[in-house]
């Protein structure tokens, strides 16, 4: 069955340089640097990545960072809490715009 998303394609991510090498090289260097231990631990960064993967709804990233967070010793409860953070921000982002709706509604109401 043909689908837009094929789990096997995740393995090809490293090969995007085939069409544009210099930018891919720069991106992967940057990517590697970002996920190194720094002011945040690699574990904390992995949980952030898992949450962002859900916010941007990237199935490849969800697969990759589910494995990565588990490898880094996170448990299912911690992983789900990270997804709730993403959901809270996404939900909050919608709801906070309701202030604009409220402003406009009040503006045009008697």
């Amino acid at each position: 069955m043909k689908t837009y998303y094929n789990p096997e394609d995740l393995k090809k991510f490293g090969k995007i340089g085939e069409f544009q090498k210099s930018m891919a090289d720069k991106f992967f260097d940057y990517y590697g640097e970002v996920f190194k231990e720094g002011a945040l631990t690699a574990r904390e960064k992995s949980l952030i990545a898992l949450a962002v993967a859900h916010a941007v709804q990237c199935p490849y990233c969800i697969d990759a960072y589910t494995v990565d967070t588990m490898e880094k010793g996170c448990d299912e409860e911690q992983m789900m809490e990270a997804v709730h953070v993403a959901a809270a921000i996404r939900g909050g982002a919608s709801l906070v715009h309701s202030t604009q709706m409220m402003n406009k509604a009040k503006e045009i109401s008697m």
Partner: peptide, 20 residues
């Protein structure tokens, strides 16, 4: 000793030790 509870590899020994 930490063994992964499933089909994945162990992460950084140093990071896991600190968490444990």
């Amino acid at each position: 000793v930490y063994n992964p509870s499933g089909a994945f590899l162990p992460g950084s020994q140093q990071g896991l030790e600190a968490e444990f």
